[in-house]
Amino acid sequence: MSLGRAVLLRVQGLATHFLTGEGVAPAVDGVSFDLDDGQVLGLVGESGCGKSVTALSILRLVPSPGRIVGGKILFRERNLLDLPEEEMRRLRGGSIGMVFQEPAACLNPVLTIGSQVAEVLEVHRRLPGREARREAVECLQRVGIPDPEMRYGEYAHRLSGGMKQRAMIAIALAGKPSLLLADEPTTALDVTIQAQILDLLRRLREETGMAILLITHNLGVVAELADSVAVLYAGKVVERAPVATLFARPAHPYTVGLFRSLPDLQDPGKRFEPIPGSVPPPTRFPMGCRFRDRCPIAAEVCAEEPRLREIEPGHLVACHKV
């Protein structure tokens, strides 16, 4: 896979747990993956399976009562979990940019969107005020915000959902990150603007070697942008493969179910088959394979936890029956 490329990010056995009233919630539980310079890794999986918590863990922004209880996060070979907070702050918004899933969680309601972009430019790229302002307008333009000059002075609540999302992308990209954590970056965008944003990300990775951890529910977006995919279920990676392999030969029963529930614009009458049941809350994950009580081919062996095994070059699956 890596043609002499350096591993930019190596997540090893990451475990992030929440201490809730109902007990320990192992929201992320032993997640591992590598990301090379210029690569795009798609992170997919059912709602609540731990995608956002994984991304927040990388930035050490896990909200309380959550804690990273195990594993390593190596960014350019340094374990982020050992860095002093001071250095972490320099990385956030600088070398590591993040597009948050919900704009409200990230955009400051009392600052204009333009000044929030300019702030990144001043802090992380040390541009003087006037230059930062000019460049910020350019950043807004690059992500397709109409009238960037005029919109510079707008507050988040006056923007449409998709404009907020684009403003957030502008903020994340302003620091010229070498790693972008993009949590559902295009959900609020129509498909034409989504295509523009995907083009922009593709260009940036080609021109600057930016790597992207792309969290998305949209398998179409994964197909367009990702080089490889990790499928998460209930806090664990259940399948990992190059994108073409995963789409051609999904192996884990959960992944297979995911593909079956895809809607098809060409065939709106298609019977849709959601995976029965829902992800249990993390305090109630079953022992053994966590997909056990929803899996159509579960057997007795599944009471034991399946390990990730390579079933063909680069294609790893955690299932006893594959």
Binding site: V44, G45, E46, S47, Q101, G161, E184, T187, A188, H217, L219, G257, L258, S261, L262, P263, F272, E273, P274, I275, S278
Partner: peptide, 17 residues
């Protein structure tokens, strides 16, 4: 208003149903 944009395809299918 974008009620299922943050949902994976399987949960999305449940909500649509």
């Amino acid at each position: 208003d974008e009620p299922v944009s943050a949902l994976d395809v399987s949960v999305q299918a449940q909500i649509l149903a």
